[in-house]
Amino acid sequence: MALIEVENLTKTYHDGTVETRVLQDISLTIQAGEFIAVMGPSGSGKSTLLHLLGFLDRPTSGAYRFADRLMTDYSDDDLARLRNQKIGFIFQAFNLLPRATVLENVKLPLVYSAIPEDSWELKARAAIETVGLTARLNYEPAQLSGGEKQRVAIARALVTNPAVIFADEPTGNLDSRSGGQVMAAIQTLHADGRTIVLITHETYTAEYAERIIRLRDGQIESDEPVAKQRAGEKLFNK
């Protein structure tokens, strides 16, 4: 089943009189359960694509179907609700609340959901368990290593049981060892059947994906399956 379908998606920014076309005529389909890596040099439009697909921004033109529904007419509040229910984000800079514990950070998306409060604790603990940080439940981010922080962010992305997880350079701020742990955690999510869209410029992380889309100057340069799957995984786990 196609989870995400975009057709001729274009995004243009206006800065005064200067018009910058960041994305041009992007058409792609993402099936439920796929693990996709989006690669490309900086300025190629990969972050913009992620923002559009993640309902953080609206395209200038083109059609976006999410689970067979056209997204064009959704209001800001509808999009906020969709982000909450259907999407999990993992950011390069982790973006954890500094003065909240691991548990509170993971609960944060639930705060904005319609999920009854008495089930939050259980859901949050389960998500933290998945990333193997149960021992750090009451730590604050400042007490965690970079890799642990990102795993908290993964738990947070996971806690609402979203249809798709967008990860924007999740290992960009990490050393290769922590990066490996983070990628392993993402790999586990995928193994559980989740759809994952990973933005990266590092080939070794992209190799976790089943399919790599390369962007250049706002256009799709190539879109092909990964031949040697799990090669990267072996690299980290030796």
Binding site: G54, L56, D76, D77, A80, R81, R83, N84, Q85, F89, F91, A93, N95, L97, L108, P109, Y112, S113, R156, T160
Partner: peptide
Amino acid sequence: TREIGLRKALGATNRD
């Protein structure tokens, strides 16, 4: 500002 961005990404509406 970043916290606001994060909260919005996680589903906070403008009213929240």
